Computed example of a mutant assay.
Amino acid sequence: MRKPDKPSSREPDREPRAQFAALPWRFDPKGAVEVLLITSRDSRRWIIPKGWPMKGKKSARCAAQEAFEEAGVRGHVSKRPAGDYAYEKRLKNGRLQKVRVQVFPLRVEDEAESFLEAGQREKLWLPPVEAARKVDEPELMVLLATFHPREAA
């Protein structure tokens, strides 16, 4: 006889779930704005650093921590989001989870050689309009294409 399943201690799914992302940016040597894209670990698509909420951390701080863990960048993160976008994340069980991502600009002041996910992702600095052409999510495309550091202050 089969034992009844234990109740799950996991939080029940919410539609959509929330994530927080950093939009790392800097000025190139000529003074033009560049933004940083990274590849996802599984599908190798171009994305921005993002992750799930962290207990005890405000959303902007979560975004900044993800930027360091996934891309090795540190700097000043805006407390105000530049916008948000939606996507569907494929979970390990194969199910698609709707996610709404708040995006916080992060002016990059330091780029580390060694960081948690170094070697697992590619990194690419591009002008915002070029970066917009590389991502798949339509709302993220618009956010990137229209990004300007004046709004990031």
Rank of each mutant, 00 (worst) to 15 (best):
S9C: 13
E11N: 13
P12A: 11
E15H: 11
A21G: 11
A22D: 00
W25L: 09
D28H: 08
P29G: 06
P29R: 03
V33K: 03
V35S: 02
S40W: 08
D42T: 13
D42H: 11
W46T: 01
W46H: 08
I47Q: 13
P53G: 07
M54K: 15
K58Y: 07
K58M: 11
A60M: 03
A60E: 09
A64N: 00
A64V: 08
Q65V: 14
Q65C: 03
Q65S: 11
E69D: 11
H76P: 08
K79F: 11
E88R: 14
K89G: 09
R90A: 07
K92P: 11
N93Y: 10
N93G: 07
R95W: 11
K98T: 11
R100C: 13
Q102L: 15
F104K: 05
P105V: 06
P105H: 00
L106D: 07
V108L: 05
V108F: 03
D110C: 06
E111M: 08
E111C: 05
E117Y: 05
A118F: 03
R121D: 00
K123G: 05
L124T: 10
L124D: 08
L126H: 02
P127G: 02
K134F: 09
D136C: 12
F147A: 10
R150H: 06
A152Y: 00
